[in-house]
Amino acid sequence: MIEARGLARTFTGKHGTVEAVRGVDLSVAPGEIVGFLGPNGAGKTTTLRMLTTLLAPTAGTATVAGHDLRADPGEVRRRIGYVAQGGGTDPSIPAGEELDLQARLYGVDGRAERIAKLCARLELEGLQERPCAALSGGQRRRLDIALGLVHRPPLLFLDEPTTGLDPQSRGNLWEHIRSMRAEDGTTVFLTTHYLDEADALCDRLLIIDQGRIVAAGTPAELKRRVAGDVVTLELADPAGAAPAREALSRHPSVREAVVAAGVVRLTVEDGERQLMGLVRALDSAGVELASLNLARPTLDDVFLTVTGRSLRDAA
């Protein structure tokens, strides 16, 4: 659905030249939900604006929705939807009028039915007469998405879709994005700087930092790249700490075992699968457990590993 090679954009301004995007390669398959994750200023929006024909790349090539970005921007535009970070509605214009104009601009057949169906799906019924300024944040965001979907594009770009929404609206929006893919097979390419969003919503992630893609994979794959999972074992009897440690250290998945005050902390590869084996090893050593905890690395740990900085600090 998207094939980009060496996509780059340089801005020349008063304060010299800024390389916002420095050669991005990316592939997105039909039906995927791909997240573009990175701190503010990493080049997410610039990449998105290039892929949506809004900004000419200074270098590189891309095929988007089957058409070359440079040679055939008109055909690309017909096949993509784009929802900008700040939306794109006039506060004084009624929501229904914006939808109608958008459908006309794309030359959608059966406008009225299409708009009615979209409004039903995105919970916008009864709001069409209202000026966009009178909609809540969540409603306006859903209207923006309806505007991006009015021509049934096979590929939808979302720039920071849930920034500024309350937690409930965010969850609600994630549901809508998933259902778009489930019902229409819409491919979704979204940017986010929220780790939980990337984790919960995306099939695959591209991590971008300082204009370059520094890591790519499913959220699980990316996390597996980090040192390992942390397993914390609390023992029923602190005296069992030494035999416990000895039994666990012999287990092939354990990289490191630390004992402190009746608690054993293990760094384990692929902890979820190894947990049973660890418990059995303790059992055969005759050590009784009080509690057991498995902590998986977060995407923030991933970001820390690949860039040397925490995403929270970088953002």
Binding site: L54, I80, T89
Partner: peptide, 16 residues
Amino acid sequence: GDLRSGVVERMRVTPV
């Protein structure tokens, strides 16, 4: 105003 509200960009991404 339209540049700021994103209306211009929204229209420019259509084949208009």
